[in-house]
Computed example of a mutant assay.
Amino acid sequence: MRIFVYGSLRRKQGNSHWMTNAQWLGYHTQVDYVLYSLGHYPGAVPGEGNVQGEVYRIDASTLAELDALRTKGGEYKRQLIQTDYGSAWMYVYQRPVEKLTRIDSGNWLDKDRY
C-alpha cells in the first residue's frame, strides 16, 4: 500500500522517523486541497489549491502506527487519493480552519514564509 505525506512525516522533518521502514516513491502534488499550519505540523482540507508532498510504499504495521499517531482524537481522517504511483492514503484534517494560517504554496517546507 502507499501513503501520501505532506508535513512532519516528510523526509528531514520532525516525524520522518515514523517512515524509516517505508520505501520512498517520489514527489506528488494533490490538487483540490488546501494546506494550513497547525503550529508544528500542517493539516490539509478539501478546497481550491494544491498540497505538495511525498509518496511512500508502506506495510500494514507502519499504516497502523501512523493511524494511531494521526487519527487519535479525530484530528485527521484517512482518505484514498490517486497519485502517479497509484492509489495512496492521505490524512485529511477534520477540524475548523477559519483561524489557521493558510500556506498558499501548498508546501509545508514553506511554512516559515507565512
Rank of each mutant, 00 (worst) to 15 (best):
Q23P: 00
E98I: 10
Y56Q: 09
G47N: 10
S87K: 14
Q52D: 03
Q30C: 01
I3G: 02
Y85P: 00
K99N: 15
I81W: 03
L66H: 06
Y91C: 06
D84T: 11
Y76E: 03
S61D: 14
Y6N: 04
N50T: 08
L38V: 07
Y93R: 03
Q23Y: 04
V5A: 12
H40Q: 13
M90C: 12
P42L: 10
Y41S: 02
V31W: 09
P42F: 11
A44Y: 02
S8Y: 08
G47Q: 07
N50D: 13
D32F: 01
T29F: 02
R95K: 15
N50F: 06
E98N: 12
V5G: 05
R11I: 08
Q52L: 12
Y56T: 04
A64F: 04
L66C: 01
I58G: 02
S16L: 02
Q13N: 11
G86W: 03
W24M: 12
R78K: 13
Q30L: 11
H40C: 07
N21L: 13
S16A: 09
E48F: 02
V97T: 15
Y36V: 07
Q82A: 09
L25N: 02
I81M: 05
G26T: 10
G74K: 12
H40K: 14
R78M: 10
E48W: 08
E75A: 06
Y56N: 10
G49K: 06
I3S: 04
G86H: 05
V92F: 01
Y91T: 00
I58S: 06
I58H: 06
R78D: 03
I58V: 13
Y91G: 05
I81V: 14
V55F: 03
V5W: 07
V31M: 07
Y85C: 01
D59I: 09
V97N: 05
Q94D: 08
K77I: 04
R10Y: 01
A68S: 13
D32A: 15
E65V: 12
A88P: 00
L100D: 03
V92D: 01
V5H: 05
T83R: 08
L25E: 14
E65A: 14
L35N: 01
G86D: 09
K72W: 04
Q23G: 03
R10I: 02
E98V: 14
K99W: 12
W18P: 00
H17D: 04
L9K: 07
Y76A: 04
Q52T: 08
G39T: 05
G14D: 13
W89V: 00
V92R: 09
D59H: 13
Y33M: 10
Q94H: 09
V31G: 03
T71Q: 12
N50K: 15
W89E: 01
P42Q: 14
T83L: 06
Q94P: 06
L80C: 08
R57K: 15
L69S: 06
G74H: 12
R70I: 02
Q79I: 09
W24H: 15
L63P: 00
G43K: 07
Y36G: 06
G49D: 08
L66M: 09
T62V: 13
G47E: 04
Y33S: 08
Y27T: 14
G7L: 08
Q30M: 10
S8E: 11
V55S: 08
Y36H: 10
V34K: 13
T20R: 15
G39C: 11
L100I: 09
E54G: 05
Y41C: 03
Q79G: 00
